[in-house]
Design a protein around this nucleic acid. Structure first.
Lengths: 241, 241
DNA sequence: TCAAAAGTGTTCCTTCTACACCCATGT
DNA sequence: ACATGGGTGTAGAAGGAACACTTTTGA
């Protein structure tokens, strides 16, 4: 993603990805922190190459950030306010980091390219958090999972993008039955319930939840899982792709 | 929309509008026919000015095409395949119309601008068909309402865009309760039912449909409507904004 | 008084909810 | 044996579907 102005991208169009994972009863989002002073966090983003489908671009961005392929992905909304520009943020960043920054040949060109008004296509992804190896880029100070209840200070309208992604995920939960993409290959019914509760923010009655999920007819029951705990061993299930 | 290459639009981004109306028990779409030989139909489209929100751009396009304001509007999807280009269509058009076309100064520039790969943001609109006065542009031979079951030969992927818009409208029908935007200010319960049936393609039992709609608590009952027919006069209703 | 269409009520059945009950497991 | 958590069954409530019945209107 260096020197985007030099590459053959579609101008003024970006893709922002909200990558959801699940761990410890909490729904999380993978967010890089930008590698400059000032404490800025920004969603994993990228641009669309001229010869690339937008879905492919989103897949590429996700592959680069998570190290895994074949990720569950949904385009959920376009953010297109005329005021959507990196300029205020970039100017603040430059002011805070004037010592570190040197003027290169391409710097002004990149600055002009970056600070135009951007239309951003929002995608959300659901991943098995255990499979992901978060990939830092040169621009990142860190990249971490943050609970949806504890999102850091995001640049531009990225907080809003996350909120919209979550809302869409909540709406999709019943119709698209995609929550299983947050779980590992095999899982117990209790884990399914905890994922559903983390996403929806509601609680469910254990016995009825089990019947509801089984009636979807999307799970196959495997052998039991012996945890060593002093109680009945739960069944393991696998999602019938 | 003349000489777009000269204007300050965001390049390679367009907006396509699927304008739904309702008449005579049929869901219809407003579609212009392009003013050249070859029988091409294309959705009402436009571009996004640099200082314009994408929602504003969609509103502007709709205002220009329908003559009315304050239209119900939903952004529903982005179409972004790398192969999305006007070039095949434009080349065919030029071949068919070589006699009519003269080379102007801006022609090549426009051609280059138009034939790039485009990312299109799809909006669907719901309008009261009686209020609309379809507006022809210079580029149109005609602009007509077509039944969703009898859509003409569309350019590019515009048939697919219509299909996606319809699918979204069907899904939104229950949650967003927006079908009333297709009806005039006041209407009977029978008309509501016919609109729902036209959108969903299903039929409903009259008595149960009435109870379902009333239980939504979005209608206020007005006086009765005397049609002169030899039967009980139905109530008129108005949608509570 | 009759046909046609609108409005209301009733019954039946399916689905959802709450909860009781039983089962397996390791200490 | 028993505490703990998992799985199944069931009664009651709520919601939806089918249909009978009543009302209104003009001919």
């Amino acid at each position: 993603m260096k020197n985007p102005s030099q590459q053959n991208y579609i101008p003024q169009v970006s893709i922002d990805c909200v990558i959801f994972g699940y761990h410890n009863r909490q729904l999380k989002v993978l967010i890089p922190k930008i590698n400059f002073s000032g404490d800025f966090w920004a969603l994993p983003s990228g641009f669309v190459a001229q010869d690339e489908d937008i879905d492919q671009a989103a897949e590429r961005i996700l592959r680069d950030r998570t190290g895994i392929q074949d990720i569950y992905l949904e385009q959920f909304r376009v953010f297109g306010k005329a005021s959507r520009s990196n300029k205020p943020f970039l100017d603040e960043l430059i002011a805070l980091n004037s010592d570190k920054l040197r003027v290169k040949n391409e710097a002004q060109q990149d600055y002009d390219w970056f600070t135009k008004r951007f239309i951003s296509i929002g995608y959300y992804a659901l991943v098995d958090i255990n499979k992901v190896i978060p990939q830092k880029t040169d621009l990142d100070e860190s990249i971490e999972w943050y609970s949806i209840h504890d999102i850091p200070r995001m640049i531009m309208d990225h907080s809003n993008i996350i909120a919209e992604a979550l809302k869409t995920l909540q709406n999709d939960l019943d119709e698209k039955i995609n929550a299983f993409n947050l779980l590992p290959e095999t899982f117990t019914m209790k884990e399914v319930q905890e994922v559903y509760e983390a996403i929806s923010g509601k609680t469910f009655v254990r016995t009825n939840f089990q019947k509801m999920i089984l009636s979807l007819d999307v799970l196959e029951r495997l052998e039991k899982k012996f945890t060593g705990a002093a109680n009945k061993a739960p069944y393991l299930y696998r999602f019938k792709g």
